[in-house]
C-alpha cells in the first residue's frame, strides 16, 4: 500500500516534470535545437518569484506562481535572443554550446540569490490531506496536478485553436513553406521560447511549493531530469513528454519508499533501458526532417 501511495504521489507531482519535458520538446520540435538552459531558466523564474515573495511579505501564492511563470517567460525570450537569434543555426553545436553557457550563468545567479542554500518557499495548503480509504493524499499534490493539467490544456488550445498555433506547427513541420505563407520564423521561434518558458516557470514554482523549499541545486537536477523525460518521451513529442514525466515521477517516488539514495540511480537506469530498447522514445520517430 505504501508503494501504491507513493506511485500516486509520483504521478501527481510528475506532471511538473511533464511540463519541463514539454518545454524542452516544444523548442526542439519547432527549431530542431536543444535549449539546455531551459530548466535552469524555469528555476531562475521561481527564484525571481521567491525574491518578490521575500520582498513584499505575504504575497498570495497564485501571484507568486504567476510571477515565476512571467519571469521564466521573459528569460525564455532572452535565451532566444542571446543563444539562438544571432547564432548560425546551421552549425549544430553553436547554439548547444551557447545554451550550456547560459545554463552555467543562470545557475550562478541562482547560487548568489539563494546564498548557496535552499530557501523557504510558500506552500499551497501544506497540511491539508485527503483520505481515501487506505490512501492519504496531500491536497497540494492534487493542486499541482490540476494546475499542470490546466496548463497543458491551455497549451493545446493555443497550438490547435489560434493563429499563433498554426504558425508554430507550420514552422515545426515545414519551415520553408511556413515562410512562403508569410509566417515569420523569428517571431514564431521567439513565441515558442516564451510559451515554453511560462510553462517551465509554473513547473519550477510548483516544484518549490510542494517542498516548501527552493533548492539552489535545482537548476542542474531539473536539467538532467527534464532531458531524461524528453528522451524517454521522444524528442519533439508532447504526448511523449507527458507520459514520460508521469513515469519518471512515479519511478522516483516509488523507489524512494525503498531507498532515497537509489532514487536518482533508478531514473538513470530507466533512461539506459530506453536508450537500449526504444532509442526513439515512447512516441518519437527516429527519422530526420529533410
Amino acid at each position: 500500500m505504501v508503494l501504491v501511495q507513493a506511485i500516486i504521489d509520483g504521478i501527481l507531482v510528475g506532471t511538473t516534470y511533464a511540463l519541463i519535458g514539454i518545454g524542452f520538446t516544444l523548442i526542439f520540435g519547432v527549431m530542431h535545437k536543444l535549449n539546455l538552459a531551459f530548466a535552469a531558466a524555469s528555476i531562475a523564474g521561481a527564484f525571481a518569484s521567491l525574491v518578490a515573495w521575500q520582498h513584499f511579505k505575504d504575497l498570495p501564492v497564485p501571484l507568486v506562481f504567476l510571477i515565476s511563470a512571467a519571469a521564466a517567460g521573459v528569460l525564455g525570450y532572452l535565451i532566444y535572443l542571446t543563444c539562438f537569434r544571432f547564432i548560425p543555426l546551421k552549425s549544430p553545436l553553436a547554439t548547444l554550446m551557447a545554451t550550456v553557457g547560459m545554463l552555467i550563468f543562470l545557475e550562478e545567479i541562482v547560487t548568489h540569490v539563494s546564498d548557496g542554500k535552499a530557501q523557504n518557499y510558500p506552500g499551497m495548503l501544506p497540511d491539508a490531506r485527503w483520505t481515501l480509504g487506505p490512501l492519504d493524499i496531500r491536497v497540494d499534490y492534487i493542486l499541482v496536478f490540476a494546475i499542470s493539467v490546466a496548463a497543458m490544456l491551455l497549451l493545446l488550445a493555443l497550438l490547435y485553436r489560434t493563429r499563433l498555433g498554426i504558425a508554430t506547427r507550420a514552422v515545426a513541420q515545414q519551415p520553408v513553406a511556413a515562410q512562403l505563407c508569410g509566417i515569420s520564423l523569428d517571431r514564431t521561434n521567439a513565441a515558442t521560447f516564451v510559451m515554453s518558458g511560462v510553462l517551465g516557470g509554473l513547473a519550477g514554482a510548483m516544484i518549490g511549493s510542494s517542498a516548501e523549499l527552493l533548492s539552489n541545486l535545482l537548476p542542474l537536477q531539473l536539467t538532467v531530469k527534464g532531458l531524461i523525460v524528453t528522451v524517454i518521451g521522444g524528442l519533439g513529442s508532447i504526448p511523449g513528454a507527458i507520459v514520460a514525466g508521469l513515469l519518471v515521477g512515479a519511478v522516483e517516488k516509488g523507489v524512494e519508499t525503498w531507498s532515497v539514495l537509489a532514487r536518482d540511480l533508478c531514473v538513470m537506469l530507466l533512461i539506459f533501458v530506453f536508450l537500449v530498447a526504444k532509442p526513439a522514445g515512447i512516441f518519437g520517430k527516429l527519422n530526420v526532417r529533410d
Binding site: 498554426i166 506547427r169 507550420a170 513541420q173 515545414q174 520553408v176 513553406a177 512562403l180
Partner: peptide, 11 residues
C-alpha cells in the same frame, strides 16, 4: 507553390 509541394504533413 514550392517544388515538392511542401504541404504541412501533420496539419
Amino acid at each position: 507553390v514550392p517544388e515538392n509541394r511542401l504541404v504541412f504533413p501533420n496539419m
